[in-house]
């Protein structure tokens, strides 16, 4: 029981991070119909920037947090402005190659900036771990859960209450029509990219204290985030959250049965199974674009 609870705790913690990453995939897909293969790299940049700003430059935590997220948002905006927007024929294969290229480029830059070593980060606060029914709950887990919830609510309010948010939804439904009624569609795509990158950055910031961070952490996390987004149904915010948590818990329970090396493979097998049997997601109803 105690062990089980421990697995659940760590699963939910990791799952919340996957959820934030998935949210980035999902909202970009929802507003532009694109899947950004560089999403995982934004997680890496977020995590390593936080460590540099907080522990390297000794900024206070909230500032370091904001700085790290801002850096990833800028990276996302640059990706859109200088690469995606210049594409003449947006055939999926071209966009896949460009974002994969961006992903490998960012990873290379990450390696130059932060080196090949792994970096650790302390928890956000120094509280002693809580003891619940014999299982330990780290304060960092609470931080992660609260911040994840904040991101989801923030995105929800942005889409429902703010004019810009609604304009972005309009672009998602029809770029052409949105342009006709005077919505600056190019800016909306730019904003969507930087917001989705920022979410990757937040995911990185959250996970930094949990495990060691290095330049090559991005792909695993990106794929898991994508997997979570697929479970919940791409394009759905709440689906992304549920998908993330589900994936986290499944993975944590899986560790009990599988070796840690196979744990990573398990997530990808799950991804393939979902692509096979429920491409619209377990919760999603939106039909998957078949081309």
């Amino acid at each position: 029981m105690q062990e089980f609870l421990q697995y659940i705790f760590s699963g939910i913690t990791n799952g919340a991070v996957y959820a934030v990453i998935a949210l980035g995939f999902s909202m970009l897909y929802g507003s532009t119909g694109l899947i950004n293969f560089a999403q995982g790299e934004f997680v890496m940049i977020g995590a390593l920037s936080l460590i540099s700003l907080w522990k390297g430059v000794n900024l206070p935590l909230p500032l370091a947090f904001a700085g790290a997220v801002a850096i990833t948002a800028i990276a996302g905006a640059m990706l859109e402005r200088f690469a995606i927007r210049s594409v003449k024929k947006p055939h999926p294969i071209v966009l896949v190659i460009i974002t994969v290229g961006a992903s490998i480029l960012l990873r290379g830059v990450g390696m130059l900036v932060w080196g090949k070593d792994s970096h650790g980060s302390p928890s956000f606060s120094d509280h002693a771990p809580y003891d619940i029914l014999g299982a330990t709950l780290l304060p960092q887990s609470l931080w992660i859960l609260v911040l994840t919830l904040g991101v989801v609510l923030g995105l929800h309010i942005f889409h429902k209450r703010f004019l810009t948010g609604r304009a972005m939804l309009a672009c998602a439904i029809s770029t052409k029509a949105a342009g006709i009624v005077g919505i600056p569609t190019e800016k909306m795509v730019l904003l969507a990219f930087s917001m989705s990158a920022a979410m990757g950055g937040i995911g990185g910031v959250l996970i930094a204290p949990l495990s060691m961070s290095s330049f090559d952490m991005g792909m695993n996390l990106g794929l898991k985030g994508f997997c979570a987004a697929m479970i919940g149904g791409l394009g759905s915010s709440w689906g992304a959250v549920v998908g993330g948590l589900l994936l986290g818990v499944l993975e944590a329970l899986g560790v009990g049965f599988l070796s840690s090396g196979l744990k990573d493979a398990a997530a990808f097998v799950l991804l393939l199974l979902i692509l096979y049997f429920r491409p619209s997601g377990l919760l999603g109803t939106a039909s998957v674009q078949r081309f």
Binding site: I35, M219, L223, F268, L271, L272, P279, V288, Q289, R290
Partner: peptide
Amino acid sequence: PLLELSGFYLGMGTLGFGMI
């Protein structure tokens, strides 16, 4: 199954397969 889906999914699916 993957080739029925749009190019993005095949990209992700094969990426996952490569990792496996």
